Simulated scan of single mutants.
Amino acid sequence: MVFTFCYLMRIRSKPVLCNYYVTYRCNAKCSFCDIWERPSPYITLDDVAQNLRDLKRLGVEVIDFTGGEPLLHRQIDQMLGMAHDMGFITTLTTNGMLYPKLAERLKGKVDMLHFSLDSPDREEHDTGRGVACYDFVMESIKVARALGERPDILFTVFRHNLHQLEELYQNIILPNKLLLILNPAFAYNEVETGEQLTEEELTFLSNFGKRKYVYLNDGFVELRRDGGNHIDKPVCKAASTTLVISPENELVLPCYHLGTKSFPIQGKLYELYQSTEVEALKRLEGRLPACEGCTINCYMQPSFAVELNKYFWKALPSTLKYNYLKGTWKRLLPFNN
Rank of each mutant, 00 (worst) to 15 (best):
T198A: 13
K268E: 13
K107Y: 00
E307N: 13
S116H: 07
T23V: 01
C291I: 02
Y273R: 05
E61Y: 10
D47Y: 12
N323G: 13
L178V: 03
Y169D: 02
E123S: 10
R12A: 04
G108I: 11
L52M: 02
E37C: 04
L325R: 15
S240E: 14
W36E: 06
C6Q: 15
Y322H: 12
L253G: 02
T94P: 01
E250L: 05
E123Q: 12
L113N: 02
L92I: 01
V48Y: 04
R10G: 08
Y7D: 14
F136A: 14
A305N: 10
L52T: 00
K310I: 02
V306F: 06
C298Y: 05
D54K: 00
I153K: 09
P41W: 04
P120L: 02
I11G: 12
L178K: 03
R129C: 03
N176K: 03
L223Q: 10
V110T: 08
T91C: 13
R145D: 00
E195V: 05
L179D: 07
K107A: 09
R159P: 00
E139H: 10
Q50M: 14
Y299H: 13
R12W: 01
I265W: 04
N297G: 09
L92E: 03
D232G: 09
L180Y: 00
L71E: 07
L243W: 03
Y215Q: 12
R150I: 04
